[in-house]
Design a protein around this nucleic acid. Structure first.
Lengths: 95, 95
DNA sequence: TAATTTGGTTTACATTATAAACCTATTTAT
DNA sequence: ATAAATAGGTTTATAATGTAAACCAAATTA
């Protein structure tokens, strides 16, 4: 009943979890949007996005808007599944 | 609406959260009980219990059962409040 | 043309988590 | 009686993680 399954360390991080949460609702978001919503520093966000991408939880597209770089993120199917599993496991910790 | 409040770092840790979760339901638990339920190593558990105690989230009593040392833990009012606040904040991350 | 801003990345440092090693005392086996 | 194993932990060393500060290139503004 009260079994504590391991919590995916990639998701059990405040900033990465916030990012995933945002991406779940919007399905596509710019770096600056994520930065504002999460109130993180750019450096921290950059690092954490990298990790999520390497895990295959999000996809990152780099392009230009006008002449400036633009980084766009979207969650993947794998990311959605991982998030859902994480939430299911987490619930057993918090009832 | 979708504001991400900071998650108490003391509780946003798999093992410490599991411990707090257990202590909430039983109100008093022995070291070995916590160790079995959380499937943690004694060393890790020892360290994490220390942190929870230093934060005032739990109380640790050391005594003897027969001739052997016995460590008993119980959650404090402060701990309960912190746990509840953590859960409230966390919910905004996971809907 | 110098300073500031945008949109980030890289790097260095501090914190954290974890396992391994250790410790003291007790119990069991020889 | 002595040695080996077990109980019930703590301490310490190392690896992993999170974060901010420093940095960079290009564009914009003063």
């Amino acid at each position: 009943m009260s079994e504590f399954k391991p919590l995916d360390p990639l998701l059990h991080s405040q900033l990465r979890l916030a990012v995933m949460s945002l991406l779940l609702s919007v399905e596509e978001a710019e770096f600056t949007f994520l930065k504002e919503k999460t109130e993180s520093t750019a450096g921290n966000l950059s690092v954490q996005l990298d990790k999520l991408e390497k895990a295959g939880y999000i996809e990152i597209e780099k392009s230009f808007r006008g002449k400036r770089p633009l980084t766009t993120c979207k969650i993947t199917g794998k990311g959605i599944k991982a998030f859902e599993a994480y939430v299911e496991n987490l619930k057993k910790y918090i009832q």
